[in-house]
Write a protein that binds this DNA or RNA. Structure first.
Lengths: 193, 193
DNA sequence: GTCTATATACTGATAGAC
DNA sequence: GTCTATCAGTATATAGAC
């Protein structure tokens, strides 16, 4: 499933096949419909994010430091896989509107549940940070939306500059995470690492 | 041009005509293509935002208070016209990718210029606030993107609750603006008004 | 100016040869 | 399992009657 890192929705299934170096027949042999293809891609992407962030939430550091690492990993992932993330965004917007066939309900349901589990990683870590006195807020629904809006935003506005290094991206990510942290009401303590 | 406040892209031109109470012929009599229709709608929406925010940038208050009013007006507008804004977003994403016909280049160019003027309203006001000592940051490109990401975000996550009052929305907007202000590094001074 | 066909092109999905 | 047709539906856009 490593094939598509650029985009398929709003680009036809013919395009997908072409990029894969094959034809539609192959795709429809594996997936009954385009929506199912999308669900699989979406799930793969979510699992990738989850498995890169989840370990960070269990580290030995203070909760706020764990949150910072998680947020950095998330934002960095968004930048690195932005083309993919855009497609996911588009697909979610599309399939959430379209009256999903009843048979695809639980497929969509599982996807949403997975996203919820992912959000919970951040929520519980922030709750710990609040108990540590490093955050003034608990993560209400709105605050959570605002936090992810900031961390996800580079998906839409980032575009690589010529000769950009990894350390440039690291600095970019630091700005994003700092913005979100300050926004949430956290203290921007010592620069670790 | 008051006709569409909900959505037209990804909903066909037939739908637009139906909602207008007419047929395709009329639309194609006024606009040479769907892209031109979109450009006109987009421009109208931008001018609406601009004309509601621009006066606020010229008030007598301290710059940071003007910025707060501007940000509140912007966020409130995003919530109130979220369906429209979603369509605009979708259309921009679509038309920015598609190899625009050379004849529509300057149409798109003017649109981008208008958006740039709008962003400048916020930038100059924040610059003044920085000189007043109320902001630590000047508004770099990244900070600007993050700010608008936060202020625009309710377009995607807000949905009205049953029995929601204007004052509920006001509180919501306050949370959004506070998040953005803190994120930018501003002091969250006295609650005015 | 507005409506009713209709041309043209593209998409998701299917059937059947190999 | 993979490819080559091909169907059916829908979209933008156009031509011509009124």
């Amino acid at each position: 499933m490593c094939f598509m890192e650029r985009g398929y929705s709003a680009t036809s299934i013919d395009d997908v096949a072409r990029r894969l170096g094959a034809t539609k027949g192959r795709i429809y042999h594996h997936y009954p419909s385009k929506a199912d293809l999308f669900a699989d891609v979406f799930r793969t992407g979510m699992q990738f994010s989850f498995s890169s962030v989840e370990p960070l939430s269990k580290g030995p550091e203070r909760a706020i430091e764990r949150w910072k690492k998680m947020a950095r990993a998330h934002a960095t992932g968004m930048i690195r896989t932005r083309a993919f993330q855009r497609v996911v965004w588009e697909g979610v917007e599309l399939h959430l509107k379209g009256a999903t066939t009843p048979e695809q309900r639980d497929s969509l349901g599982r996807l949403i549940a997975h996203r919820e589990r992912y959000a919970r990683l951040f929520r519980t870590t922030i709750e710990e940070a609040r108990r540590d006195g490093d955050m003034q807020f608990s993560l209400t629904g709105i605050a959570e939306e605002l936090m992810f809006s900031a961390l996800n935003s580079p998906v839409f506005w980032y575009s690589p500059r010529a000769g950009e290094t990894d350390s440039d991206i690291k600095e970019l990510v630091d700005q994003i995470v700092s913005f979100a942290l300050r926004g949430l009401g956290g203290k921007e303590g010592s620069k670790n690492e």
